[in-house]
């Protein structure tokens, strides 16, 4: 049940991205926070890491969102399990997420 505070950066001022905002609002796990110029604060509270990942991917795929930054993640054992699961993944996007391209001894 990851909880994260994220900052979305749009390619234009937030209020000019109504379609994208509607799409984000439609995700029930997301609460919208403050907006300023091209940046929007949100909190994602999902039931499990798989759903968290889906939401993350959805956000990254919104055309007008140019960057998704993490402001805070609740750190507990679930996060570690998630990290561990992710390092096993070889089909992560974008191309260089961890696991796929690190040094092997």
């Amino acid at each position: 049940m990851p909880i994260s505070g994220l900052v979305l950066t749009f390619d234009s001022p937030v209020e000019q991205n109504q379609e994208a905002l509607d799409a984000i609002k439609a995700i029930p796990e997301i609460d919208l926070g403050q907006a300023n110029d091209r940046k929007l604060a949100i909190v994602v509270d999902s039931d499990d890491t798989i759903r968290d990942r889906e939401i993350w991917d959805t956000l990254q795929q919104i055309t007008s969102v140019t960057n998704v930054a993490i402001a805070m993640v609740a750190f507990d054992s679930e996060c570690e399990e998630e990290a561990s699961n992710d390092t096993n993944s070889q089909d992560d996007t974008p191309e260089d997420t961890q696991g796929a391209n690190r040094t092997n001894v």
Partner: peptide, 19 residues
């Protein structure tokens, strides 16, 4: 959970408003 959510919102908010 609520405390963590509000901390997460404060954190994200500080990035947005503080630039």
């Amino acid at each position: 959970r609520e405390i963590l959510k509000s901390a997460a919102m404060a954190a994200a908010g500080s990035l947005v408003t503080g630039g």
